[in-house]
């Protein structure tokens, strides 16, 4: 319960941050050339000034900046994100349609990065400065330095065009109309390359952190005690070191949640996945500012939610957090 209270307090503290972001981005978007009505008029193939004025009145764009901002925030409180003129649907609907693909991709990529980062980090730390350490560290550096979208393109060339093992893009095969298990398998097949593309970059970061924190914990007194008791090395690592070395890794999930969402913008465009990131890109190209603002809101919410979960995890891993404060 204390864990929940603590994490809840952190959650409450992020509400002002959220408002700061929304107000900032809202004001920023006022500098954008053209507004929603301009975009709509362009969509309709032009129109006269009276229609434009009527539309602006309808959307409340003729009000003062302060009034518009107040209107927007008041609508947000009621979870109304406004209307997307480009898609002809409420922004909330557009985003809800795109959210599953992004969540799936992020979860898969994060799991891959965390799991393999952990294993490779442990292997590298246990053979520090030996060949396996050099190999893993070099691999990590290369994956870190590689632009994700370029890795995605190269993976498409090898696995989709040359070997033809996996599809080159898309979320599922819509021409066949699969259902149930077959559909799930089809989606998994489509997500293999995007997950690798997004995940390997983060795996490089995780393995570096894991290696460093393993080395740090391995030098602590309680590990020496465990070894002195005659415990074999595997048991020392699994029972004593791992749990302590995991803390920085879990912190990193919270810190990286935002960048990962940003990374999925690029990955989703490479593999033409219908996700939130691609929507962000499209709304920039089409000047759909309402949708863009909605995405800013949802992605900030997502990052806050991830950090909330990280807080809970953290307390489970380190009992001192609940006992202490």
């Amino acid at each position: 319960m204390r864990v929940l209270a603590l994490a809840g307090r952190r959650l409450a503290a992020s509400i002002p941050t959220l408002f700061l972001i929304l107000i900032g981005v809202f004001l920023l978007l006022q500098f954008a050339p053209g507004d929603t009505v301009d975009a709509m008029m362009a969509q309709m193939g032009g129109g006269d000034a009276t229609t434009a004025r009527q539309l602006r009145e309808f959307y409340g764009l003729d009000l003062s900046l302060g009034a518009q901002l107040a209107n927007y925030l008041w609508r947000l409180v009621r979870l109304d994100l406004g209307f997307s003129a480009i898609y002809g649907k409420p922004v909330a609907t557009v985003i809800a349609e795109r959210l599953p693909a992004t969540l799936l991709l992020m979860t898969a990529a994060l799991s891959l990065a965390f799991f393999f980062g952990l294993i490779l980090g442990v292997v590298a730390a246990r053979g520090v400065n030996k060949w396996q350490d050099t190999l893993i560290s070099t691999l990590g550096l290369v994956f870190y330095a590689m632009p994700t979208f370029w890795f995605g393109l190269m993976a498409i060339i090898v696995f989709a065009i040359y070997l033809q093992w996996l599809p080159a893009g898309g979320f599922e095969d819509i021409t066949v109309g699969l259902t149930g298990l077959a559909r799930t398998l089809d989606i998994i097949r489509h997500l293999v390359l995007p997950t690798l593309t997004l995940g390997l970059f983060y795996m490089a970061i995780y393995l570096r952190i894991m290696r460093g924190s393993m080395l740090e914990v391995l030098n602590l007194d309680f590990v020496r005690t465990a070894r002195a008791k005659g415990m074999d090395e595997t048991r020392v690592v699994v029972r004593h070191v791992l749990r302590n070395a995991l803390l920085p890794m879990v912190t990193l999930i919270g810190l990286q949640a935002g960048t990962m969402l940003g990374g999925s913008v690029v990955v989703e465009s490479v593999f033409s996945l219908p996700g939130l990131g691609r929507l962000a890109y499209e709304s920039v190209i089409q000047r759909d500012l309402n949708t863009l603002l909605g995405i800013v809101f949802v992605s900030a919410l997502l990052v806050i939610a991830v950090n909330f979960i990280v807080d809970l995890l953290y307390a489970r891993l380190d009992p001192r957090i609940t006992a202490g404060r």
Partner: peptide
């Protein structure tokens, strides 16, 4: 904190759009 909560690439997209 606000800058860290907002995904940096999305903010970059907003800035380039504006």
């Amino acid at each position: 904190e606000a800058f860290q909560t907002l995904p940096n690439f999305i903010l970059l997209l907003v800035l380039v759009a504006v």
